[in-house]
């Protein structure tokens, strides 16, 4: 085998090897190429792309915090509402509540007399 034939055979074998690199390797090479080409985009655009997921996360955390804070405020109001409903729905005589001052005065008089 002369040198040219030998070199041709070497080249053919190496070419064959690169034809069978496997999907995972080819995918990685493709990702590397895309990462390299991304360097051509303006810096501002790359920064936007880089920080977009992070800013989304921050926004989500802020929204969750706001909702949690607001729901804490709402709970006492809710309890107040429930109390009102209980008073309205109870079978107690409403006069009792209307004349509450009178009953309080009566109680104080009894205590001072006693």
């Amino acid at each position: 085998m002369n040198e040219n034939d030998f070199l041709k055979k070497v080249k053919t074998q190496l070419d064959e090897q690169t034809e069978h690199l496997g999907a995972a390797t080819l995918s990685k090479l493709n990702q590397s190429r895309q990462a390299a080409l991304a360097q051509l985009q303006p810096r501002g655009h790359r920064l936007k792309q880089k920080w977009l997921p992070a800013s989304g996360l921050v926004a989500a955390v802020l929204l969750t915090s706001v909702f949690m804070f607001r729901s804490e405020e709402i709970i006492p109001n809710g309890e107040q509402g429930i109390d009102d409903i209980e008073i309205i729905a109870s079978n107690d005589n409403l006069e009792l509540y209307e004349q509450l001052d009178f009953y309080m005065w009566l109680l104080e008089e009894n205590n001072s007399a006693g």
């Binding site: 190496l14 690169t18 690199l21 390797t25 090479l29 590397s32 190429r33 390299a36 080409l37 051509l40």
Partner: peptide, 15 residues
């Protein structure tokens, strides 16, 4: 152009 160039050389470069 760079995409084409890199896709031409990437396999051999890896090897």
């Amino acid at each position: 152009a760079l995409d084409q160039f890199l896709s031409q050389v990437e396999r051999r470069a890896f090897k």
